[in-house]
Design a protein around this nucleic acid. Structure first.
Lengths: 220, 220
DNA sequence: CTCTGCCTTCTAAACTTAATCAACTGCTCT
DNA sequence: AGAGCAGTTGATTAAGTTTAGAAGGCAGAG
């Protein structure tokens, strides 16, 4: 299933929007017409639809009601026609939200993020090609899932939440193992090794999890 | 549980808004301060909160984040301050929508109606070929009914409502058996087994209810 | 009311996977 | 070059999960 289908007949605007969404870690499709949107929706499904109203032939209202016949996938309508009638129609047809063009991309992204989190618990951290799905406890590198064990996942999460910071060994150990752990601190380095093996192109020359001699590690 | 809590320190505006909502058939409470809103929410619960931002003492943002600590009740923010920052803050705090004052009452009502319908009147959960009829407590796989026991049904329902999310064993146990249950947590795994036997093609290699080692289970 | 059958629970053993340890090797910095 | 810290390895231990069987409990039928 795709994360988001962007329906926009202006290819330039649609592409730009898709790029913004991809940068936030969402897997997006661009549909250039209402018909194409429905095709993609039927074939792939989606978690969210961003729907421009003004489309050739089958317009946004049509797409919305077609989807709403059987599904309640969230839909955000986008339109340059800012009349009250249009908004009301959109909402009555079952759109979750309606944004006027020109919309503020930050606000649109915040709305998307909010819907994804509330609806699908997809609370994710993205860093370049690396994506962590906190609620699902899964990690993806360029779309490919990387299977991590519990400790590995907890470690990586803490690293990503503290990107750039140098984390002392004891600090890391206490965070992941708990302050009252009786394990040998040495254990940490073993898990760092497993993590590097899974995350780094060349585990011998790590580019993500760097060693800070005498102190600890830093995730870049 | 109340349908809607209207939080608005201007009693006149709040009263008017409540009247409109009541006319649409919603059971509404009017809270004149953030503190009162939380009191009502704690005591009564609500299906939706309409939240004015500008309140004495505890403002709308505070109320929103307090509610979001444990619940994901829909929240619509209302504000006369129409800066981008406010909107972004609101959305990031987990508000479902943000409306600028002066808002159009018809549009507000349409939004409320939409949220209520999508959120609380879906009696069916569909996921691929699997369909759950909540009220009838029946489950169908590709049209064929699968007969489940009470516990199995409750479990599957919770799984489907939290698709993709890793559910901790204790969390699941508390949800289905109640927090004060004296049963052995081990019992949970037995029911997972029965469920897999009924839902999975090959119960030994589950594709729907996956084990997340050391944490719990995930329905995909 | 009692019987019957299914649902649920419990238990213990088998099994699977992950974490740990400890000894060794290799690297870095002075 | 040496001291000390970090990395590697594989055997071992620990932890967590599944399974099967048996027993208990509850509800509906007779």
């Amino acid at each position: 299933m795709a994360d988001i289908i962007v329906v926009e007949d202006n290819e330039e605007i649609g592409g730009l929007l898709s790029d913004f969404l991809r940068a936030e870690g969402y897997d997006t499709y661009l549909a250039l017409s209402g018909e194409e949107a429905l095709e993609i929706y039927e074939a792939e499904g989606a978690k969210l639809v961003l729907l421009d109203l003004l489309l050739p032939n089958l317009d946004g209202f049509g797409v919305c009601s077609k989807i709403r016949e059987h599904h309640n996938t969230p839909i955000i309508m986008l339109s340059a026609q800012n009349g009250k009638e249009d908004k009301l129609n959109g909402l009555l047809l079952g759109a979750d939200d309606y944004m006027e063009k020109p919309y503020d991309i930050d606000i649109l992204l915040a709305k998307v993020k909010g819907i994804m989190k509330r609806r699908y618990f997809s609370d994710q951290i993205v860093d370049g090609t690396l994506k962590m799905d906190k609620a699902g406890r899964r990690v993806y590198e360029a779309g490919q899932e990387i299977v991590l064990t519990t400790k590995e996942f907890d470690l990586l999460l803490y690293f990503m939440e503290n990107k750039g910071k140098v984390l002392k060994k004891e600090e890391l150990f206490h965070k992941i193992w708990g302050v009252d752990s009786e394990s040998e601190p040495q254990t940490l380095t073993v898990h760092i090794k497993w993590l590097r093996e899974k995350l780094e192109k060349d585990p011998k020359n790590p580019e993500r999890i760097l060693t800070v001699w005498g102190v600890g590690y830093r995730y870049i």
